[in-house]
Structures are given as C-alpha cells and as structure tokens.
Computed example of a mutant assay.
Amino acid sequence: MDITVFCSAADLDDRYTTPAREFAELIGKGGHTMVWGGSESGLMKVMADGVQANGGRLVGISVEFLRDKARTDADEMVIAKDLAERKAGLLARGEAIVIMVGGTGTLDEATEILELKKHGLHEKPVVLLNTAGFYDGLRQQFRRMEAEGFLPRPLAELVFFAEDGAGALAYLESVAARTR
C-alpha cells in the first residue's frame, strides 16, 4: 500500500519520535511505500529512516524552496513548485493518509484532506495518529462540529483516530481488505 504520511520536519522529543520509529518500522516491514514531504529533518527524517531500514520504499514530494533539505536517497523524489502542488501530489500518490503530530503546516494539510473528503473529492481512508494525546483537542472540536451539524457526513466516515502506529496500520489494512 502507498501510505501518505503528513508530519513535522521539526526535531521533537522522545514522546513523539519513539512512536514514529515504531510506526515507520511497521510500514517498512509490511512492505508498504511511504509517500511523505521528502524532508531530511525532524520527524520526517525519523519516519524515512525507519521505513527504509525495514525494507519499505520512500516517495518524497518536496517543494522548490525546500529542495536543499530533501532526502537524497529516497526511491523517488518529486519537487513541486509550491505548497499547493505538493499537497495535491501527496494526496494523489497515496492510497491512504496518515496525519501525525505537526505544526501549522500539518494542520493545514489535515484540514484540506478532510475538507476534500467531506465533499466526496476523494474516498481514501484518513487516520489522525493521536500520539501522546496530541489531537485530543481536535477530536473534541470535530465531535462538536458533528453534533452541531457542521459536517454533512458522520465523523467516523471522515477520519479514524488511532492511538498508536499499530492501530493506524491495522485500520488501513482492514479498509484495504474490504475494498479489494
């Protein structure tokens, strides 16, 4: 499976990097391809190292202004002209989406992916990987949006919240098995 992973390029502490390494190992050992932002820094690097070390493939989609930070030994690297083209490429290349911890860029990517799904412009499974409760507040906000009628589809159809990488991958593999 080609799994698009949105995550931070920031250097983070062990409560985020350890679960990321574990998830990357599962992706690699499962024979999956990780499609990601292509960066050689922060959590993006942790994920890429783990996937590659465990036999998985790497497809990076970086952006022109970050070209010098792109991983040089990815199986494939695409350089997009801007962030919008990068997001579109990341969505197009993955069969499933996992959103890990991150800052405003990751949040922007997550909301756009969910907005497109809300309108039926893609039906790919989307997982928010809630490492260390990072997305508890966002889950609460989404539940309020659903309860107050802001979502035209049930929240469970839009996104699955996983507490760890094993739960995220198990969900994605179960969806893939049902749709074959």
Rank of each mutant, 00 (worst) to 15 (best):
G137H: 09
K117S: 03
L114I: 09
L90I: 06
K81N: 02
E112P: 14
K118T: 13
L90K: 07
T72H: 05
V126Q: 02
F161I: 02
L158Y: 04
F161S: 01
L90G: 13
L138A: 15
V126N: 09
H119F: 12
T111G: 15
R143I: 04
F161K: 03
A96H: 07
A84T: 12
T104K: 15
R143K: 07
A96G: 11
P154V: 03
F160M: 13
I113V: 15
T131P: 12
A88F: 09
L155K: 05
A70E: 00
K117I: 02
A132E: 12
E163Q: 07
P152K: 03
A132P: 10
A132N: 15
F142Q: 15
E95H: 15
A74Q: 00
D75K: 01
E146I: 00
R86V: 06
F142S: 15
H119A: 03
T72R: 02
A96E: 09
A92K: 11
E112G: 12
F142H: 13
I97T: 13
A84E: 11
R144H: 11
I79T: 11
L155T: 02
E157L: 13
Q141C: 07
E76D: 13
V127G: 06
P152S: 13
V159K: 07
H119T: 02
E163L: 07
K87L: 13
P152W: 06
R143Q: 09
D164M: 04
I97N: 11
M145S: 14
D75Q: 00
A80Q: 01
G94Y: 12
R144I: 08
G94N: 10
E85P: 11
L155C: 04
F150V: 08
I79F: 03
I113L: 08
A162G: 05
R143S: 11
R143H: 03
L83R: 12
A110W: 08
G120P: 09
T106A: 12
A156G: 00
D73Y: 01
L91R: 05
G89E: 06
L90Y: 08
L91I: 11
D108Y: 07
E157F: 03
P125W: 05
T72K: 09
P125Q: 08
D75W: 02
M145A: 05
L90W: 07
I79Y: 00
